[in-house]
Amino acid sequence: MSLRVDLPGLSLKNPIMPASGCFGFGREFSELYDLHQLGAIIIKAATQEKRYGNQTPRVAETASGMLNAIGLQNPGVATIIDEELPFLQSFDVPVVANVAGSSVEEYVHVARKLSESELVHALELNISCPNVKEGGIQFGTDPDLAREVTYKVKEVSKVPLYVKLSPNVSNIVAMAKAVAEAGSDGLSMINTLTGMQIHLPSKRPLLANQTGGLSGPAIKPIAIRMIYEVKQHVSIPIIGMGGVTTAEDVVEFLLAGASAVAVGTANFQNPFVCPEIIEALPQALEKYGFTSVEDCIGKGHPHESSYLSRT
């Protein structure tokens, strides 16, 4: 059973990778298992300068999910390149760097630095973080802004670019088309949905930031629907994410049209979930009659041959 998938910039031995923000820069999880097993690693978002992020509480559990409002805490792109990325080189796993910012100039700066470092295989352009006051999500909800920032980042990036789409839009296909037209090599979808929880004893929003991004199995049907819709209109490959906890979830994402899958919130419930999914995936694919991961991609579509990605 081949689990191999080849995507722009990413030669994956399997389609499973931890999602950005749920895995730090890999150090903590490297103490639990050999990161070499992973298909790839998407590291925590980088901004131009270091950011402390929001006040706490930053997380709240919800039914089959969680809200988070970390606020893009990170030590800044230069420190990430000097102190975090070299550590990941020893695992022989493709590294995807998540690029955040509050202006086109910041996105371009961060993307240029990371791609010039030669320590990352691809960039994930984070135009969909709901937890920072300025920038971030506005680029992810306006197709024209998304097109512009994608085009500018693509101009400076020496590695392939995956734009991470926000589900907080009414027309996800328009967003996907805009960034594909601007030259994005792939899509990463979906980021979290904006939500809120009220803390009953205090009668106030529980998160210090008031709103947070909803993730986990609660949002999986939304991710599946959006990937399915986008796959029908856009030919660039999709890294799917949103509530993946099992190998069967991975099969579902592949059927919807994803070529690889990122696992986020489930890492918190079970820190060994990524290697466990990788181990269970061949059997899950076989159960539904597939002979490889590539064989399964897009097969949830009635006329899947016309929608197949270029992989």
Binding site: G21, C22, F23, G24, R27, E28, F29, L32, K44, G53, T56, P57, R58, V59, M66, N68, I70, Q73, N267, F268, P271
Partner: peptide, 10 residues
């Protein structure tokens, strides 16, 4: 969140 230092929640 994670309880192991990876997610920056606490």
């Amino acid at each position: 969140g994670c309880g192991i230092g990876a997610c920056y929640a606490c």
